[in-house]
């Protein structure tokens, strides 16, 4: 029973409550960094790191944080982990960090993280919170990776910079532009709607 429950907390982030495609949260990084699959994956991992650690901390401290200042407290916890992630990327992967630009620090205001802290972590034990945020983080990464791969394949004919089609491929430039991000995500949301509705 207990295990089933945890399993459910973990799984719901993938399809039924996918943060990007169903709840439409965190669209800003989802659109901005998905020019290549690698950028999307890095962003996803950074969000998993920040989301899991900050919601576990929030859940552990949930009885100590006064209700009136909870949002401010959550934000400081999140901002701390974002700073850690940003400094780590800058030190170890400077190239990648440069191509993600200001979108790593912008994880601070990513509504997925504050939303999970407020809606789940502040009311549940840290074990359940851990599985919930890991599932949500993976669901986010999954959505980003699909959009990133789609855009990279269509715009350059490659994925993770590995060429797929040889020289005969005619690149679809619009997909690497901002417009391509909106169009791609719009189609993905529609497909997701179809899947969820069929169930």
């Amino acid at each position: 029973m207990q295990n089933n429950n945890l399993n459910q907390e973990f799984k719901k982030g993938f399809i039924a409550q996918n943060p990007v495609l169903v709840q439409l949260l965190g669209l800003c990084p989802a659109l901005a960094v998905t020019t290549t699959a690698l950028n999307a994956l890095t962003m996803g991992l950074a969000v998993i790191f920040v989301l899991t650690l900050s919601s576990v901390i929030v859940s552990v401290l949930r009885k100590l944080i006064p209700y009136q200042v909870r949002i401010a407290a959550f934000t400081i916890i999140i901002a701390t982990f974002v700073t850690i992630a940003d400094l780590f990327l800058k030190a170890n992967l400077p190239e990648l960090s440069k191509s993600l630009g200001p979108y790593v620090p912008l994880i601070v205001v990513n509504c997925i993280i504050l939303g999970r802290c407020e809606a789940f972590a502040s009311k549940n034990s840290f074990v359940r919170t851990f599985f919930d945020s890991l599932g949500m983080g993976l669901g986010f990464t999954f959505a980003l990776l699909v959009l990133g791969s789609l855009r990279e394949i269509l715009s350059t004919g490659a994925i993770f910079s590995i060429n797929l089609f040889g020289s005969g491929f005619e690149p679809m430039l619009v997909m690497i532009l901002p417009a391509g991000a909106f169009l791609g995500l719009g189609v993905m949301v529609a497909v997701m709607n179809l899947i969820v509705r069929k169930k």
């Binding site: 439409l24 619009v174 532009l177 901002p178 417009a179 391509g180 991000a181 909106f182 169009l183 995500l185 719009g186 189609v187 949301v189 529609a190 497909v191 709607n193 179809l194 509705r197």
Partner: peptide, 20 residues
């Protein structure tokens, strides 16, 4: 608007056209 596109889907596609 076709069913699955209703709401967010069509809004995103409009945003794409605006961006273009």
């Amino acid at each position: 608007v076709p069913g699955p596109l209703k709401g967010a889907g069509i809004a995103l596609i409009i945003a794409g056209l605006l961006a273009l």
